[in-house]
Design a protein around this nucleic acid. Structure first.
Length: 565
RNA sequence: UGGGGCGUCGUCAAGCGGUAAGACACAGGAAUUUGGAUCCUGCAUUCGGAGGUUCGAAUCCUCCCGCCCCAGCCA
């Protein structure tokens, strides 16, 4: 059946939830959680998970917790926690008072571990990391049991307490679950539950020197919070038996169920934390919030709206297929949103001086220009017009190809919201021969863009008054990578960086109304694209605009198709 | 060649035994004071492949092929 915008999205996870509700599993409750590890900034891939988890909770009248999955002190920090909180909020979701930290469960988890030891399901192992790997076997060969596997629970208890007390060095011992070294699922071959790390934790400080592993901590954290549907990505599918094992052996209630979906892949960018960190650390980008980054903070600074991102997350769907979403879909979502709400303004990125020969020197008039062509309620502003203007360099061509219908020698075009002008001459740069100035005449009868004699014009171009416009810097962003996919593993992916992903234009001129624009404000520069006032750099109060996305450009496509002169 | 998962249009994705939704992309056209937005139109006789069951299969069965994940004291 066709789905209209009003009907909520349906996917295999919601089908499961529907069924669980129908059969009254989980006492009819729906409780999800978004559990990031605070060791990086959230990106568009996290947005997919955030929208899924919070979306399902909202749809079924349940709850969604925000939980920092902070079980490994190395790499985690408050800066990341803050970025996560800021970004989830910005996306428009509310966890109310349910902000939790796995690190708050350390004591409970420790008690659970002791219980497992007491019932003979966990043991302290003295093997080194290398030895454990060796004993683990391979994909095709079973593993071997550790020589420490059969210690008495008294001995294990004592040893584990001493681990906690800090009596052993990092890596000297670990606590392992006693499951099955011959399991075809490697995850079940006596997985490590606790390791010793004498590191300062950003929240618990020096209190602990043993830290629980993900598999042990996650299922129990879910249970502690009463989570019903623990949604995670596909790579954890192998871990599900272990997730269930801990819950079963500890006999805890309630028992959350883990459901896996495919993580987001987006063309022309990377979404792995490791690669994003590398981009930041190697200075390829200016930081986590660089507008080129697929991070939520970068996209926000670039001008993406939360609505556009949420819509994108809904449109891509949820499944178990490995997929690569076309960046064009994301771009379509921003355009769709910004087309509705962005004010239209005039800005010239690469100025070309135009002198209107027959316009009186010193005279200035103002045109009343609507902020939106379809929404009059968005109001209008006055835009000054005078004898000397700037137009876009690419809107004038000395030798225009067949389908180019902007300004050229002898041609007449319309200045948006203004007069018709006809090109009557050019001034060329003495040494290089480039056109440095264009001379035109205007038709006073065409004042608001209409000719009383009914004559038409092929093009409408944007402009600003030279004397009244204000200078601005504009940053043109393009895709971060040159190729859509197969960015490769290892350090190779850097070789596919798009060297032209950022072009900074320093001598742009924008209409005077923009001098009051505030950081984060979004506009459509007519005929060019959507732009957002930068919110991080403040170069001595010079206006800086980041290009969010271009407008669709039919001319660019025609021009690309080749020479049609 | 162990185990787990996945294969429906260029990219996503519905479909759950009754004869292939939708979106993006793409291609035409209408209209247009943004070569924008809008509006029409076209775009899988076929569902990784081969057999089989059935009146009828993308949906069930069998075999095969391809891709992804797992051998961190990361998550």
């Amino acid at each position: 059946m066709a789905r209209n915008d009003a009907s909520p999205p349906s996917d295999f996870i919601r089908v499961i939830v529907d069924e669980d509700l129908r059969t009254h599993r989980h006492q009819g409750r729906v409780a999800t959680r978004f559990p990031p590890e605070p060791n990086g900034y959230p990106h568009i891939g996290h947005a997919k998970s955030i929208c899924l988890n919070f979306g399902i909770a909202a749809q079924y009248g349940g709850t969604c917790n925000l939980r920092m999955d902070d079980t490994d002190p190395s790499g985690e920090s408050m800066e990341y926690v803050e970025s996560i909180i800021r970004d989830v909020k910005w996306l428009g979701f509310d966890w109310q008072d349910r902000l939790y930290y796995a690190s708050d469960y350390y004591e409970k988890l420790y008690q659970y571990a002791m219980r497992l030891i007491r019932v003979g399901k966990a043991y302290v192992c003295d093997l080194s990391a290398d030895e454990i790997r060796e004993y683990r076997g391979t994909l095709t060969e079973p593993g071997r049991e550790s020589p420490y596997r059969n210690r008495s629970s008294e001995e294990n208890l004592a040893l584990f307490e001493r681990m906690r007390a800090g009596e052993f060095e990092d890596g000297a011992r670990v606590l392992r679950a006693k499951i099955d070294m011959t399991s075809p699922n490697i995850t079940m071959r006596d997985p490590v539950m606790y390791r010793i790390k004498k590191e300062n934790h950003y929240r618990t400080g020096e209190k602990w020197c043993i830290y629980p592993m993900y598999d042990f901590a996650h299922c129990l954290s879910d249970s502690i919070e009463g989570i019903t549907h623990s949604i995670c990505t596909l790579e954890f599918e192998n871990n599900r038996p272990l997730y269930d094992w801990f819950l079963k052996e500890l006999n805890v209630e309630p028992r959350p169920q883990q459901i896996e979906f495919a993580r987001l892949n987006l063309s022309f960018t990377v979404l792995s934390k490791r690669k994003l960190i590398e981009l930041v650390e190697k200075g390829v980008v200016s930081g986590w919030d660089d507008p080129q980054m697929p991070t939520l903070s970068g996209m926000r600074r670039r001008g993406y709206s939360p609505e556009a991102i949420r819509n994108f997350c809904e449109r891509i769907g949820v499944s178990k297929n490995d997929s690569l979403i076309d960046m064009a879909l994301l771009e379509n979502c921003v355009r769709e949103d910004l087309n509705e709400r962005a004010q239209r303004v005039l800005a010239v990125l690469r100025p070309l001086r135009v002198v209107i020969d027959n316009y009186p020197e010193g005279e200035v008039e103002e045109f009343d220009c609507p902020y939106h062509p379809k929404n009059p309620e968005m109001g209008s502003r006055k835009v000054p017009f005078s004898r000397v203007l700037y137009i876009e360099q690419e809107d004038f061509l000395e030798n225009p190809p067949k389908k180019f219908f902007r300004l050229a020698m002898g041609r007449e075009v319309r200045l948006r919201y203004g007069y018709f002008i006809r090109c009557v001459g050019v001034v060329k740069n003495a040494n290089r021969g480039e056109v440095s100035e264009v001379h035109c005449t205007y038709d006073p009868e065409t004042r608001s863009g209409f000719a009383p004699d009914g004559r038409k014009v092929d093009a409408t171009i944007h402009w600003v008054s030279a004397a009244h416009s204000v200078p601005a810097e504009v940053r043109l962003y393009d895709r971060l990578f040159r190729i859509a996919d197969s960015l490769g593993e290892g350090p190779d992916f850097m070789e596919y960086l798009n060297k032209k992903s950022l072009e900074t234009l320093g001598s742009c001129r924008v209409e005077p109304s923009l001098s009051h624009a505030a950081p984060g404000d979004r506009f459509q520069f007519e005929r060019l694209g959507y732009f957002c006032v930068d919110s991080a750099d403040d170069k001595d109060k010079v206006l800086i605009f980041n290009r969010t996305v271009t407008l669709r450009d039919a001319w660019a496509r025609i021009a690309e198709k080749g020479d049609d002169r």
